[in-house]
Computed example of a mutant assay.
Amino acid sequence: MRRVVGFAAVALLAGCTSQETGGSAPSTTAPEGLVVEVVASGLAHPWDVGFLPDGRMLVPQRPGRIALVEGGRVTDVEADLGDVAARGEGGLMSLVVHPDFDTSKRFTTCFNTERDVRLVTWVLDGTRATRVADPLLAGLPSNPSGRHSGCRMALDDDGNLLIGTGDTARGEVPQDRGSLGGKVLRVDLETGEGAPGNPFGDRVYTYGHRNIQGVAVREDGMVFTAEHGPSTDDEVNVLQAGGNYGWDPSRGGTTGGYDEGVPMTDLERFPDAVPAAWSSGQPTEAISDAAFLRGEQWGDLEGVLAVTALKGEKVLLFTITQEGGVHSVSIPPELEGSHGRLRGAEQGPDGALYVTTSNGEDDKVLKVTNR
């Protein structure tokens, strides 16, 4: 994992248009000619898309089901998911297919139980999945209502598992390095233990987060997260090992409850906190998952960071500088307001971007390509 040591949001005035995003970087002309196709439907709050080496998809659904998608056909995976507690925002969430799936047939899921949020590793045999690491990691905090109990996973360029977690709407959790909530964790995919080189010698990689919904790794190893703000300032952040991202609704333990009136990144309380690469201002978009567009088929969009939005019902395309700043943002009209709430984002082995809807009824997996 490369340590990110310097970055800033880049506010360039050139190229602004009336396509305003309301955020801390200028907007640019929306790209034209994206093609959006439905490749699967009949799903319920699909949280993620995990691609198998042969192009089939594993799609976890928040109520506690996993779909296997092949050629537009949706098959339920037979798996013991009886301990999934699907309440509010919580349930079955992220899924990662192991890099050695060809031989191991393994994938890992993250979900709420009645007691915690935990990771479980499975072996897939046909359409049946069996637990083999149960749990891989347990004890992530959970809110009984499901609020801010999220979990988003991605693999870094060293093959370690990055896990973005929510603060469970408890004021003291984000700044408490003894808690696994409001953090990005970096663990060994096989053991669930802290990965070598972690800044505090445990599983914690960064802290001071509110509610991480997306984790994306650029080809050079730089890691970006998408995070929900309260009534203002959703954030795109660049991870810096050991960084504090400045969310403290307990006001240093002086305020009871969960004070959402504090800044999303409180640079007054924490002068060394890592500033956001981009923030939404008002209104928030409830940004969710994130994925980089890779390959020549994307043309001028190659290297852009695609971020889905739940409340905003759109995809935002971030042009990122080499240093990790946000140069500009655009919104493709084909993915604005036409499919409802958008949650998952993953680039497939065919180079297309796959996006999931999260409307609760007849949700879909969308395939996005550049004409």
Rank of each mutant, 00 (worst) to 15 (best):
F270H: 13
G182D: 07
P199D: 10
V262Y: 04
P275L: 01
H209R: 05
G166S: 08
P230V: 14
G208Q: 11
D157M: 00
G281S: 08
S149K: 06
G208L: 04
M264A: 15
G229R: 14
Y258A: 04
G221W: 04
I163C: 00
P271R: 01
P263T: 08
I212L: 15
A154K: 05
D272V: 04
V274Q: 14
N160A: 10
T254L: 12
G192F: 11
Q240M: 15
Y205E: 08
R170G: 04
T254F: 04
R203F: 02
Y258P: 13
V173W: 03
V217A: 09
D234Y: 01
L267R: 03
G201P: 09
S279L: 04
D259W: 13
P263E: 07
D220H: 01
L161M: 14
L180F: 12
R218W: 10
S149V: 06
T284G: 06
A154P: 13
G229Y: 13
P263V: 03
H228G: 15
R186N: 14
V173H: 05
D156N: 11
G281C: 05
I212S: 07
E268C: 00
E235S: 08
P230Q: 06
G252S: 01
A273W: 03
L162S: 12
P230D: 07
Y205D: 11
E227L: 00
A226Q: 15
R210D: 04
D233V: 00
P249E: 06
G178I: 02
S280F: 11
R177L: 10
D188V: 13
A169E: 06
G281R: 03
D272H: 09
P249N: 12
V274T: 10
N160K: 07
V223Y: 13
Q240C: 15
Y205I: 02
G178Q: 14
G214K: 04
H228A: 14
P275E: 04
F270T: 07
H148P: 12
E260K: 15
G253F: 05
Y245Q: 11
G246H: 07
T191A: 14
P196S: 13
T165H: 06
G159D: 07
A216F: 00
P230S: 13
L180K: 10
Q175R: 08
G221H: 02
S280I: 14
W278I: 08
D202L: 00
V215N: 09
N244W: 05
A273L: 05
L162Q: 04
D266I: 00
A241R: 08
W278S: 07
D234E: 09
D266Q: 06
